[in-house]
Write a protein that binds this DNA or RNA. Structure first.
Lengths: 224, 224
DNA sequence: CGACGCGTTGATATGGCTCAAGAGTGGTGG
DNA sequence: CCACCACTCTTGAGCCATATCAACGCGTCG
């Protein structure tokens, strides 16, 4: 990919890894707001998230946005289905990534252990997306948000004192675009969960899970 | 196929007999209404659809249903993320499948060409699901249905006389569960497209695309 | 200090859901 | 060949969950 192409339409600044850097150093750091790649970019790298959080998005011409996934440590982004990326990817926090060539996944003659790790990541992603479908297509706003918090808690929740704490590095708008809602509805639904004492909210972006079981029931659509 | 809004169609991906691997590759036929597997079944087989149409579904305890994908010839179903299937799979038409062990995808020491074919199918599925997300999360009912018909037409539409014809082997309820709508809304939306002469409907389950361009515009949310 | 972005809350609008009734459609048996 | 039944599809009326529009508070930044 002979970097330093001048794509003028990119408003946000792009991470432009110098070629030698990428090839020798297999890790990369990226700052919040910076794009790792954009939809339509040639897809010749696959990234494993080592730290931080990424955001994968798809946008329509009229601006409607869907957040496809949040990439947490252990996740892998950039799976190529053809020669190009089909989503935008940027960082929500300072993040470090392990960089692989697409050949590491597709080629037969690379590192077999790495190949297997990437393959498994792809299969896990398929599974995770299937859950996401049910959420987008069939759940109410409160079920969506509860499901989201549960998944996030199981991934990155921290026991702190009596309760699990979940940091939310993304905005309400990001959550809305992930769940297929509006920011207003996300905000109201947080309030609803907070008023019913299922969660508490600390500094806007940290959720404290007060009643994990109740949250689980809500996520699964049990009536109260 | 994993009906979606874009079409990463690669003819090379079609079920190709490549090599008479009779011992490892079995074929299987399955009748409409019969299940290939259920959620929770041990996942030790991967299936390539050779003919017919499959339906992958996820159901919640209270009966809410999400159709994850329709499996058309060339598609692959049953990707394992752990030891179990995470969806139900049944047939909408008499279908024939090529059966592989999961080791064909995960094992390192099998048929490399087969391994590659299955891997590519998995990557295509990830891409297709990303389109599906946008559809579920952010599109109106008419945009959803238009997108659905366009993808189906590009996959299995048949030029017949002046127009493309698309057979729908699934019920309105299936379409609804795929698009995150109700059957009533799907029906009304069909009527709407029919009354505006964008499509015609023949015998309930065959759609004739009268104005492909108009359909495309609707799918992408352009105003009239 | 003002401007801006983000989050919350309120008032209102509306797209799609729910409930209900009819109209095809296909299968079965007399 | 028709009568009947079960099932799917369509259509209508009303309602509700969520979107939309709008205002405001709060924290941050220049």
């Amino acid at each position: 990919m002979y970097v330093t192409t001048t794509l003028p339409e990119t408003p946000a600044q792009r991470v432009a890894p110098s070629r030698p850097n990428v090839l020798r150093n297999r890790t990369l750091t990226i700052k919040p707001g910076k794009h790792l790649f954009l939809e339509g970019d040639p897809a010749d790298r696959i990234y494993e998230v080592a730290s931080g959080v990424l955001r994968l998005t798809r946008v329509m011409e009229d601006g409607r946005r869907q957040v496809i996934a949040f990439g947490y440590p252990g996740d892998t982004v950039g799976f190529p289905s053809d020669r190009f990326y089909h989503t935008d990817c940027d960082a929500l926090m300072p993040s470090t990534l392990v960089v692989h060539r697409r050949a590491a996944l597709e080629g037969a003659n690379g590192d077999p252990a790495l190949h297997m790790r990437l393959l498994r990541a792809a299969l896990r992603e398929i599974c995770a997306m299937q859950d996401h479908f049910m959420m987008l297509g069939r759940k109410s706003s409160i079920e969506k948000l509860a499901s989201f918090l549960i998944v996030l808690n199981s991934r990155v929740g921290e026991p702190l004192g009596e309760y699990d704490h979940v940091r939310l590095p993304m905005t309400r708008a990001d959550i809305a675009d992930f769940l297929g809602l509006t920011t207003e509805t996300v905000s109201r639904t947080f309030t609803q969960l907070r008023k019913s004492k299922v969660i508490a909210i600390d500094h806007v972006n940290t959720v404290i899970i007060l009643k994990p079981l109740a949250l689980q029931n809500i996520a699964e659509g049990e009536e109260d």
